[in-house]
Amino acid sequence: MSELTRDDVAKVARLARLHLTEEELDRFTGQLAQVLDHANDLRALDLTGVAPTAHPVDLGTVVRADEVRPGLVRDAFLSAAPQPEDGRFAVPRILGEEP
């Protein structure tokens, strides 16, 4: 069995900026534990020395030339924003500092 607890799920929900009801916490804990149990076949493998693959293809270094191209006209995205103000995006007050 996976060691996933209800507290783990609550902590992950906070990290992911999601609110779960008590009922959802119970249900998600069970469902996520089921998926993680299925993943135990992976955890059981000894893959010491195997290199991880984060990319299916190895293309080498990919860069572009340092050239300026016109971006978007502000109205094209700001007018549809949830709360445009004074050419910018308004958000409610920020309590935490930037890391």
Partner: peptide, 29 residues
Amino acid sequence: SCANAFGAEPNTQVCPVCLGLPGSLPVLN
């Protein structure tokens, strides 16, 4: 490819990539 310059009008040097719009992708300078 947006300009890297200081002091422009707000949100005038932006594109789908640096606004993080869905579907945009980064390409290294």
